[in-house]
Amino acid sequence: EAHAAIDTFTKYLDIDEDFATVLVEEGFSTLEELAYVPMKELLEIEGLDEPTVEALRERAKNALATIAQ
């Protein structure tokens, strides 16, 4: 499951495998979680700032909209 989540994140969020791995290690496994989890939870991840989190959430929401079509 972790590998599938990493693949999904790299494909749809335009991030590298290392960043995707950090997200999975922090407990995220779906685009929905990244799109809708409280921003505070993402900001608790070391190295993430508000602009990065906002961009990540926007990419996740856009990916979900694209997949739904």
Score class of each variant (00 low, 15 high):
residue 1 E to S: 13
residue 1 E to H: 11
residue 2 A to V: 11
residue 3 H to D: 09
residue 3 H to V: 11
residue 3 H to Q: 15
residue 6 I to W: 04
residue 6 I to D: 02
residue 6 I to S: 03
residue 8 T to F: 10
residue 8 T to D: 06
residue 8 T to K: 08
residue 8 T to N: 09
residue 9 F to S: 00
residue 10 T to S: 06
residue 10 T to Y: 05
residue 11 K to W: 09
residue 11 K to G: 04
residue 12 Y to R: 02
residue 12 Y to W: 15
residue 12 Y to A: 04
residue 12 Y to I: 04
residue 13 L to F: 02
residue 15 I to W: 02
residue 15 I to H: 01
residue 15 I to A: 02
residue 15 I to N: 01
residue 16 D to L: 07
residue 17 E to V: 15
residue 17 E to S: 10
residue 18 D to A: 14
residue 19 F to K: 05
residue 19 F to Q: 04
residue 19 F to S: 04
residue 20 A to C: 02
residue 20 A to N: 01
residue 20 A to F: 01
residue 21 T to D: 04
residue 22 V to M: 15
residue 22 V to E: 04
residue 22 V to G: 04
residue 23 L to M: 02
residue 25 E to T: 13
residue 26 E to F: 15
residue 26 E to L: 15
residue 26 E to A: 15
residue 27 G to P: 01
residue 27 G to V: 01
residue 27 G to L: 02
residue 29 S to Q: 10
residue 29 S to K: 14
residue 29 S to H: 14
residue 29 S to R: 15
residue 29 S to C: 08
residue 29 S to F: 15
residue 29 S to T: 15
residue 30 T to P: 00
residue 30 T to R: 08
residue 31 L to W: 02
residue 31 L to G: 00
residue 32 E to D: 06
residue 32 E to S: 07
residue 32 E to A: 09
residue 33 E to F: 07
residue 33 E to W: 06
residue 33 E to K: 12
residue 33 E to D: 11
residue 33 E to I: 15
residue 35 A to T: 06
residue 36 Y to H: 10
residue 36 Y to S: 13
residue 36 Y to W: 10
residue 36 Y to I: 08
residue 37 V to T: 13
residue 37 V to K: 14
residue 38 P to S: 13
residue 39 M to K: 10
residue 39 M to R: 08
residue 40 K to A: 13
residue 40 K to V: 10
residue 41 E to C: 11
residue 42 L to K: 03
residue 42 L to T: 03
residue 42 L to A: 05
residue 44 E to R: 15
residue 44 E to L: 14
residue 45 I to Y: 03
residue 46 E to S: 14
residue 47 G to V: 05
residue 48 L to W: 06
residue 48 L to K: 02
residue 48 L to C: 04
residue 48 L to G: 02
residue 48 L to M: 13
residue 49 D to Q: 04
residue 49 D to A: 04
residue 49 D to K: 04
residue 50 E to S: 09
residue 50 E to R: 14
residue 52 T to H: 05
residue 53 V to A: 15
residue 54 E to A: 12
residue 55 A to I: 11
residue 55 A to Q: 09
residue 56 L to K: 00
residue 56 L to Q: 00
residue 56 L to D: 01
residue 57 R to C: 04
residue 57 R to S: 06
residue 57 R to G: 03
residue 59 R to G: 07
residue 59 R to N: 09
residue 60 A to V: 08
residue 61 K to D: 03
residue 61 K to M: 09
residue 61 K to G: 04
residue 62 N to K: 14
residue 63 A to F: 05
residue 63 A to H: 06
residue 64 L to A: 02
residue 64 L to V: 05
residue 64 L to K: 01
residue 64 L to P: 00
residue 65 A to D: 09
residue 65 A to I: 10
residue 65 A to M: 11
residue 67 I to F: 07
residue 67 I to S: 05
residue 67 I to W: 06
residue 69 Q to K: 05
residue 69 Q to D: 10
